[in-house]
């Protein structure tokens, strides 16, 4: 059975409809890419999953539970770890506080995160706002992992980072995949994304228009749905 299953999702921002019919599912241990051009509804879908922008209709099941009526922190507690777009750390807390505030027991502890991102260990007492962009991204990923999520959601985790840092983050993502971590990932660098994913969902104007394995996403399809 799927870990996350979304059917017929419709979400509005006030009067304007952002999602029309999103279909998406992630199986246990699977890495799924959510793709599409800017403004097609990728981030809105993620926000709807966590009820940060509750969906108006459609169904969301996570870990066997229907989650639309639940409040965000309840849904997160079922086991969703979000790395939000634009690395939203808590700037007024130290690195260690950012991590420990999120902690729930499981495989990932402070020591494990420090092992995964040695730079965070070096900066543990520094305020998050003083970190570089790449370090903040590491912190955001670390914070999400500290909740020991069943599903990790990465929204544009490598956007706007230096190539070296991107490389590091992709290495971490592949490590997590190898461990069997379920991941839902939004990213624009297809060269890195496609080899790491099991399945892809493509959104266009708030609707799921294509689903398949990355190998089947031909250059024509890429051009049709993702090209600028």
């Amino acid at each position: 059975m799927s870990l996350l299953e979304i059917a017929g999702l419709e979400t509005f921002y006030g009067a304007s409809q952002a999602l029309f019919s999103v279909e998406l599912d992630v199986a246990e241990g699977e890495v799924v890419a959510l793709m599409g051009r800017n403004g097609m509804g990728k981030t809105t879908t993620i926000r709807s999953i966590l009820a940060l922008n509750p969906a108006r209709s459609g169904t969301i099941h996570f870990a066997g539970r229907e989650t639309q009526a639940m409040r965000p922190h309840r849904i997160a507690r079922l086991g969703i770890g979000l790395v939000p777009e634009g690395r939203r750390c808590f700037p007024n807390l130290t690195v260690a506080e950012n991590l420990s505030a999120a902690a729930r027991p499981g495989r990932w502890s402070l020591a494990e995160i420090n092992g995964l991102f040695p730079r965070l260990a070096e900066r543990r007492d520094q305020m998050a706002r003083t970190l570089s962009g790449g370090e903040q991204q590491m912190l955001a990923i670390g914070r999400a992992l500290m909740t020991n999520p069943r599903l990790l959601i990465l929204d544009e985790a490598t956007e706007g980072l230096a190539p070296v840092i991107r490389h590091d983050i992709w290495t971490v993502i592949r490590t997590l995949k190898a461990e069997g971590q379920s991941i839902l990932i939004v990213d624009k660098t297809l060269a890195e994304l496609l080899p790491s994913t099991d399945r892809c969902f493509v959104l266009e104007k708030g609707t799921t228009v294509w689903t398949g394995r990355p190998a089947d996403l031909t250059p024509e399809l890429q051009d049709r749905y993702l090209g600028v």
Binding site: L52, R71, N92, A102, T147
Partner: peptide, 24 residues
């Protein structure tokens, strides 16, 4: 404490706190 960290985090952004599973 952890509680204090979460409290200060919720001052910063309640939704972000909720999205790591803490009820602000």
């Amino acid at each position: 404490s952890r509680f204090g960290a979460a409290l200060q985090a919720s001052r910063q952004n309640k939704l972000r706190v909720a999205s790591i599973g803490i009820a602000p």
